[in-house]
Amino acid sequence: MKSILALFMASLKTQYEYRLNFWMDMTISGLNLFSDFLLLFFFMLSFEEIGGWSFGEIAIIYSIVEIGWGVFRVFGEGLSRFEELIITGRFDLLLIRPMNTVKQLLLERVDFRRLGVVFEASAVAVFGFIRSPISFGRIWWIYLLLVLCSTIMTFEINIILAAISFWTVRNSDIVVLAFYSTRTAAMYPAHIYTPMLKHLLTFVVPLATVGYFPIGYLTGRIDSFLAILSPIMGVSLLLPVATLTWFSGMKHYTSTGT
């Protein structure tokens, strides 16, 4: 536990060194997300609904996915840039240490600047709740649970995608395809897409289960009770997949060498 704290503090201290840069970067990472949302806002000024969903509702699922993403980026720098670690051989340094490799990756470079995204996404959530008929007071605990699921699921997905590097070395383009695009897609109501994409978002990269389905259920747009259970299901089912992929990937890596 102490070692985790030590790693954490080391990351924090290094980043605080460059104070001005720190606040600037934090603001900017938030602003980037904000620009996407602003564009959506302008769009909704003309069109009030997307796929029958109001702006408030969309803002809510938008925020769920984005907060998960933001928290992930705070800890997940190593996972995001995993192909670099494999290419340069730096991953070997992690293997040498007496600590779980995933834990190391998550704590090695804690990027507090990315919290800007979390703040911004939270602001989007506030906006969403104000605008939508859903009462925050009643379902705040569900919302937090969904955010938690979104975070865990984002980690799980990225662990699987990072593990691909164990076999193919370069994975950044697959990550763009399999995660960046699905994440963006999951921020909007899934029924506006072709059934193929919708099923992908439900069963393969199940980000629709942490936002679209549960919120759809709560607003009465989706009838099936499964919808509200889906986030738990999604997270639980991905867990063994993530674990298995990572460890078999490591096995492959250590047996075939760099």
Binding site: F43, L177, I192, Y193
Partner: peptide, 24 residues
Amino acid sequence: LNHLVNNVGSFVFGYIYVSIWRSA
């Protein structure tokens, strides 16, 4: 090769935006 894979990703992004506009 990497770029060609990436192109599919770009296409999907385009598709998302198209879907949004189409729904409107």
